[in-house]
Nucleic acid binder design. Structure first.
Length: 561
RNA sequence: UGGGGGCUCGUCUAACGGUAGGACAGCGGACUCUGAAUCCGUAAGUAGAGGUUCGAAUCCUCUGCCCCCAGCCA
């Protein structure tokens, strides 16, 4: 370990844990967990929590559990548990055989509830949901006791048993903790512990018709699993006193809850509820749409677990509300892909170029470097011939001063090809440029200038007769507003959907070596960006997704004018 | 306006009473067969007011602003 790493500052959670280890608080153990509810796909914000909890266990020689918080059967599905497991694994996180479910503990939780009834600390309430709300009071007004609050223990016991047996309809009764209806912390005003829900559960089937509330399940599940540090997000700070109350009144193992700030990302929405709306409303193609901030979406978009981990490292952990610039995420994916992806030449928007002094039937194979950042990736050959395609953007009829590409009277280098010189261009009846004619300099094969002449511009190209076709999907940010959640009266976050978040190109031209590409192969298309083969791809129809563009200072210069 | 949290460059995050540092973004330059990458340079911050102290981002007091809580959601 270098001295820089040794003095690397610790976040507040690591400080707490190290203190606990030092004081032998949990016998020196560290045991964390990630507790997702299987009611949607995981997103980049969850990755922060997963990586944090797993990283802690690794660093302190501890254990990490995966536990599904499946206490509400009306919202949860197996599809989600499958996707969650797949995504966590993809991130490189391993929970060994410690895969648990809150529903594994339903019987134990029921016994805990009975225990609280027996000690006079819980009661069955017949008030309706509306009445409970009314009795609860408000932020500034204390609540009132329910008329059922002082039922005899025996009556509570029998009623609760009958709730379990299914004798009562949904919503007719609940089990509540008897705490304090005047507490300034509203969470403590006799919170509901169990509700009746005649609903099939994805794991326990019809065994139960009463289900514990998250608040009555979460802390005890952590306790049962002997979790030492229960790490959760800021909005659960108020609930901590309730978890502590349950743990203390039950007299069971007491984990330490620590809250941190969830991730917010600019130009992105990280709310499960809203993500579901995007999927169900058809605004995206699904949970794994490459524009989605879900792990599945990012994977399909071409992100790597390594980049996500590096990003995670960079954002840190703290209690401050934050809005991390999505540019930081983009920085780390570029950084990773730059090192690992082979380069290829692809023309997105083709414009024909004819080399008038190059023989009609001739073609030759030219050597191109696969990755200048990594010589071990070797070289490949690309065909060169009389008719080529270049990018429409790489020719300008009336060039601006700093334009280094092809233009009347100018010379440009074809990457790994030849230096060519403008001769003429042809327009169609609509005035669009349809063809450029150039001459090539045979002494510049491979792109070298033996006479030492400076050619400022180098552009990519593809041989017309050898090119293959593919569908290219150009993705961009899903939202046009930095914080789509920060809305004025009457606005909706959907108002800020980016209409250009997906642009599909059908007649792009690719160098022939790309024909062998397989799903999830990644490349850098030179001068354009990083691309990955989409699962929609077939041998007949290759489909590439653009993960991210290259940094483009030329675009920046243009924008400034 | 009850309770619980939080305010450090534009953005994230360090500094634990002793030189306010890093990363991204920005700007300028070098290099370049990718206007990429790389390299160099540069600007930019302690919410405010008091107090304690030789010395305060850090401790104390007050003020302001932001977030969370009134689900039989998690």
């Amino acid at each position: 370990m270098s001295s820089a790493e040794e003095t690397k500052p610790k976040d507040f959670i690591r400080e707490i844990i190290e203190e606990d280890i030092k004081n032998n608080t949990y016998g020196g153990r560290v045991h964390t967990r990630f507790p997702p509810e299987p009611n949607g796909y995981l997103h980049i914000g969850h990755a922060k929590s997963i990586l944090l909890n797993f990283g802690l266990a690794e660093e302190y020689n501890g254990l990490f559990n995966l536990r599904f918080d499946d206490t509400n059967p009306s919202k949860e599905e197996v599809e989600y548990v499958e996707s969650i497991k797949r995504d966590i694994q993809w991130l490189g996180v391993d929970w060994d055989d410690r895969e648990y479910y809150a529903s594994d503990y339903f019987e134990q939780l029921y016994e805990y509830a009975v225990q609280l009834i027996k000690t006079g600390k819980a009661y069955v309430d017949d008030l309706s949901a509306d009445e409970i709300r009314e009795y609860r009071g408000t932020l500034t007004k204390p609540g009132r006791n329910s008329p059922y609050r002082d039922r005899a223990i025996e009556e509570n016991l029998s009623l609760f048993k009958r709730m379990r047996k299914g004798e009562f309809p949904d919503g007719s009764r609940v089990l509540r903790a008897k705490i304090d209806m005047t507490s300034p912390n509203i969470i403590m005003r006799d919170p509901v512990m169990y509700r009746i829900q005649h609903q099939k559960h994805h794991r326990t089937g019809d065994k139960w018709c009463i289900y514990p509330m998250y608040d009555f399940a979460h802390g005890q599940c952590d306790s049962i699993e002997r979790i030492t540090h229960s790490i959760c997000t800021l909005e659960f700070e108020n609930n901590r006193s309730l978890y502590n109350w349950f743990l203390e009144n039950l007299g069971i193992f007491h984990p330490k809850q620590i809250e941190f700030a969830r991730l917010n990302l600019s130009y992105t929405i990280l709310s499960k509820r809203k993500l579901i709306e995007l999927v169900n409303g058809g605004f995206v193609s699904g949970w794994d749409d490459p524009r989605m901030p879900t792990i599945s979406g990012l994977r399909r978009r071409g992100f790597t677990p390594q980049a996500i981990r590096a990003f995670n490292q960079a954002i840190g952990v703290a209690k401050n509300e934050n809005l991390v610039d999505v540019a930081l995420l983009e920085h780390y994916i570029r950084k990773d892909l730059n090192k690992i992806t082979p380069r290829r030449m692809v023309v997105l928007n083709p414009l024909k170029v004819v080399i008038t002094n190059y023989p009609e039937d001739k073609y030759e194979m030219l050597e191109a470097i696969n990755n200048p950042e990594d010589p071990s990736m070797g070289v490949r050959e690309v065909p060169f011939s009389r008719e080529l395609y270049i990018e429409k953007d790489d020719f300008m009829e009336n060039p601006t001063k700093k334009y280094f590409r092809l233009a009347p009277g100018k010379e440009v280098r074809l990457r790994y090809g030849y230096i060519i010189k403008y001769q003429d261009h042809i327009k169609n009846d609509d005035g669009e440029i349809v063809e450029i004619q150039c001459t090539y300099d045979p002494l510049t094969k491979g792109g070298y200038a033996p006479d030492g002449r400076k050619v400022r511009g180098t552009i990519h190209w593809v041989s017309a007769n050898h090119a293959i076709n593919a569908e290219i999907r150009l993705y961009d940010r899903l939202f046009t507003k930095e914080n789509p959640m920060d809305l004025k009266e009457g606005e909706d976050y959907l108002d800020y959907l980016n209409p250009e978040s997906l642009l599909t190109l059908k007649d792009s031209k690719l160098e022939p070596s790309l024909s062998k590409s397989k799903v999830e192969d990644r490349y850098q298309f030179e001068r354009l960006g990083y691309f990955i083969v989409d699962p929609d791809s077939s041998n007949e129809n290759l489909v590439f997704n653009r993960t991210i563009t290259l940094r483009d200072t030329w675009a920046k210069i243009k924008r400034k004018k």
